[in-house]
Simulated scan of single mutants.
Amino acid sequence: MPSRWYELEIDHCSFPDHLLYDQDGNIWVKAEEGGEVTIGMTTLLSAIAGKITSARLRPVGSRIERGRSLGTLESLKFVGPIPSPLSGIVAAANSDVVKRPKLLNDAPYIEGWIAKLKPLDLKAERVFLSRAMDAAETLKNRIAEFHVRCFKAFPDHEMYEIGTECSAVLVRLSELLATASVGDVVHLVTDDPTSYVEMVRWTDQTGHELVDWRQEGSLFHFIVRKEH
C-alpha cells in the first residue's frame, strides 16, 4: 500500500483513511476516475468472517440497490451476503477473489477488492458513508462487540495450547507446519511465560518467520509463517 496513504489503526485493525466506509465498518468504497467506485471488505469483516473459503459475485451488468447483495462469502464459521454500500450497476467483478478467496483476508484493501460499481445516486447515498477518522468510535465499538483480533498476516491455522510447556508446543507447531503449504500462517496461543524467548529461538533455528506477536493478559499470541 502506498506510504502516502494514512492508515488509521484501531486495536491492530487497519482502516486506510483515503477510503469511505459503510455504517457497520464492514465495507469500504473508493472513488475512481470516470465516476466508478471500487468496493471491498474491511479487516473488520475479514476477522469476523474468518478464513474465506468461497466467494460468489454478481455478474457484470447487474443492477444493485444499496443494502442488497453484491455476492456471497463463505468460511468455516460464516455464510452471508456482501451488502452493497451504494446503488449501482456492476462494472467489474474481481475474478481473482473467486479463484483465491483468501485474498479477501490477506489483502482486503488491494488485490482483494470485490467489485467496481457505476453509482446510480452517489450524491444522495454519500451520507451513508464515512471517513475512517469520523467513524473511529463506531469501528472501535464493533471490534469490541465481536472480539476481533487483527494481525499482520491472516492465519490459515489455529493452535490453542493452554497449560502446555513451550517445548511441547513447538513440537506440535513443527508437526503442523510439516503438513502445511509454504506460505501458510499459523496463529498460536499459549500461556507459557517463556514462550516469546523460545519462539524467537525456534524461528531462528527453523527459518520460519515470526510475523507478529502480542501479549494479552497471561496469553501470548504468535503469528508464524511457513517459509520452506
Rank of each mutant, 00 (worst) to 15 (best):
44 L>I: 09
220 F>Y: 15
134 D>V: 04
165 E>W: 14
79 V>P: 02
129 L>Y: 01
70 L>K: 01
189 V>N: 10
28 W>M: 12
64 I>C: 15
58 R>N: 13
100 R>Q: 10
81 P>G: 03
213 W>N: 14
60 V>S: 11
127 V>D: 06
136 A>I: 06
52 I>N: 01
173 L>H: 11
74 E>L: 01
91 A>P: 01
155 P>L: 11
102 K>C: 04
77 K>S: 10
63 R>P: 00
203 T>Q: 09
183 G>T: 10
177 L>G: 10
224 V>A: 13
117 L>V: 04
118 K>D: 09
141 N>Q: 10
62 S>P: 07
54 S>W: 12
140 K>G: 00
24 D>T: 10
82 I>K: 05
29 V>W: 02
146 F>L: 03
185 V>F: 06
215 Q>T: 12
76 L>T: 08
108 P>I: 05
132 A>K: 13
158 E>M: 10
118 K>F: 08
179 T>N: 08
28 W>N: 08
88 G>M: 01
206 T>K: 06
24 D>K: 08
58 R>T: 08
86 L>E: 02
37 V>M: 00
187 H>I: 07
198 E>Q: 14
154 F>T: 06
63 R>W: 05
60 V>A: 13
113 W>H: 05
206 T>Q: 04
33 E>G: 05
169 V>A: 11
86 L>H: 01
71 G>H: 02
160 Y>H: 11
46 S>M: 09
120 L>R: 12
173 L>R: 12
209 E>F: 13
207 G>V: 13
115 A>C: 05
100 R>H: 08
216 E>P: 15
97 V>R: 00
119 P>R: 00
127 V>R: 07
27 I>F: 00
124 A>K: 15
35 G>C: 05
81 P>H: 02
209 E>D: 14
156 D>R: 14
175 E>R: 14
47 A>F: 07
84 S>Q: 06
73 L>D: 03
115 A>F: 00
195 S>F: 15
